[in-house]
């Protein structure tokens, strides 16, 4: 093993009359040295960012986890990649994601399932697959006031339909405004781009 302890002696004041003198002299000199350090930084340039006038460089925001946002399909950026597996909703520790699905009724047998809120688990459905109604994402809401930005939904999304935004300077005066409709946001961002 290459990890080893290194037991050192704690610096102590020197013993004896001469030692005390030396120590005192060193101590007094250390006060001057301290003034030197702060004096040097006094003349040095500042390191802070004057926030409203300056902002941090975009490069320092790489990897920043803002609130989550939906990712559009490559060919159709206005629609989310989401396949409504509900994994993100289930794994979220704070329950801040709510998803609603539109279920198109299949054309022939009209009563396969009632369009309920949420989604019944796939395994429990006895019907064969083709009879199933085609689902589409109706609503994807995020309550940002609850979110703890743990990224569990993002890492567990099977189709990479979620990612973190780089929405750093977002602040609201009202808690209600922290509820986000991510689907609308996705559509808006596409419109803004085009």
């Amino acid at each position: 093993m290459t990890i080893k302890a290194n037991i050192k002696q704690t610096p102590k004041p020197e013993a004896g009359f001469l030692g005390t003198l030396r120590d005192t002299a060193k101590g007094l000199w250390s006060l001057v040295v301290g003034l030197g350090v702060t004096g040097k930084y006094f003349t040095d340039k500042q390191v802070t960012v004057h926030y409203p006038r300056q902002t941090v460089k975009p490069v320092s925001l790489t990897g920043y986890r803002g609130h989550i946002e939906l990712v559009g399909k490559p060919k159709n950026p206005g629609t989310a990649r989401c396949i409504l597996c509900m994994k993100c909703m289930r794994i979220c520790p704070s329950g801040c994601i709510s998803i609603k699905a539109n279920v198109e009724k299949p054309p022939k047998p009209p009563q396969t399932e009632e369009p309920k809120e949420g989604q019944a688990p796939l395994t429990k459905r006895p019907e064969p697959a083709p009879k199933k109604g085609k689902k589409s994402l109706a609503k994807f809401e995020l309550d940002y006031s609850l979110c703890s930005l743990c990224s569990l939904c993002v890492t567990h999304c099977p189709v990479h339909s979620l990612r973190h935004s780089e929405h750093v300077y977002w602040a609201e005066m009202d808690k209600k405004n922290l509820k986000l409709d991510l689907l609308a946001r996705l559509k808006r961002s596409v419109e803004e781009k085009s």
């Binding site: 290459t2 990890i3 080893k4 302890a5 290194n6 037991i7 050192k8 002696q9 704690t10």
Partner: peptide, 10 residues
């Protein structure tokens, strides 16, 4: 890894 664990006896 090769590192030390600093210990002081004071």
């Amino acid at each position: 890894l090769d590192f030390e664990i600093p210990v002081y006896d004071g």
